[in-house]
Simulated assay, not measured.
Amino acid sequence: MPAPQKKIIFSIAGVLSLACALGTAAAVGTQRWVTGTMLCKTGALLVNASGPELEKFIGQIRYGLFHGERVRQCGLGGRASQFSFFPDLLTIIPASIHVSVVLFCTALIVFALVGTGFFMFNAFGSPYETLHGPVGLYLWSFIACSCGCLILILFSSEVKIHCLSEKIANFKEGSFTFKTHSEQFADSFWTILVCSLVHVLNALLIRFAGFEFPFTKPKDSETTTGAVDLMY
């Protein structure tokens, strides 16, 4: 492929990698990772609520990695309150998983920025092999994509398997018990998924630029090796 086209491809990949870093940083700071509704089970059972009456006992909850907001509905109107994960909720949530999610988000931002620098260096500089050349570009894209996948897996397990929303809703609740009524991942979670897919796209762009995937042997070398073996 001609050099100008390679520069364009690497520049596009660098811009995409930078967008992923900025998107991840924005996602980390928002409360739009999970949104849902919580049913005040105790209040609903006391009045035997059903149908339209049940709506008076369904509140909202939304949260991110550091803080969130919930609206309690126990039949007497909604009461909004703010909460933070650090340090308030660390005693009731799977802290090791949650901290790991935050660390992998940081790693994703760092490696996306590193990938941006190396893509631009390959586009406008004079790179050499190892970590500056195509092998390095594949490496940074792979690490960033792996971090994104780990974020999605760990956070999904924290929310679904460890019932994170329910634990938050019942935090410091002495007389009322809340159950998850509905729950869905929000914009920031899907932003991480898109960023992971973009790094896969970057790897395909590197291949499209004419560079083989790592650990693949060119056919010419295999033919030469076979000829040498026959000589001996």
Rank of each mutant, 00 (worst) to 15 (best):
G78I: 08
D229K: 11
F189L: 04
V15C: 06
S221D: 14
D88Q: 11
G117A: 12
L90G: 13
A26M: 15
R32F: 13
S84T: 12
T37N: 10
E212S: 04
L230Q: 13
T30D: 05
G115T: 09
E166K: 01
F119I: 10
L152W: 09
V28Y: 08
V198I: 15
Y63L: 01
R72D: 10
W190A: 03
G210W: 07
K41Q: 11
Y232Q: 10
P218Q: 06
I58R: 06
C145P: 03
V110H: 05
L103V: 14
E166T: 15
V101E: 02
R72P: 05
T106R: 04
Q31K: 08
A203M: 13
A203I: 04
S50V: 13
S81G: 05
R62A: 13
D187I: 15
F104P: 01
H181P: 14
S84F: 09
A3L: 13
K56S: 11
A13G: 09
I151R: 02
T224G: 14
W140E: 04
F208G: 03
H98Q: 02
F215P: 00
I12A: 03
A203Y: 00
D88P: 10
S188P: 15
S175T: 15
H98M: 01
F171V: 08
S196Y: 02
S126P: 12
S11R: 02
I151G: 01
Q60P: 12
G75I: 10
G36T: 09
F83G: 02
F121M: 11
F104V: 14
M38R: 03
A169C: 12
V110E: 03
T224S: 14
A19I: 14
V102T: 07
W190E: 03
K41A: 11
F111W: 13
K56N: 12
L137Y: 01
R32L: 13
F86E: 11
L39T: 07
V101M: 03
P218K: 01
V34N: 00
P134L: 02
S146W: 10
F208K: 04
G59E: 05
E129Y: 11
W190T: 11
I9W: 03
E166H: 07
S196W: 03
P214E: 00
G78P: 06
A209V: 13
P127S: 06
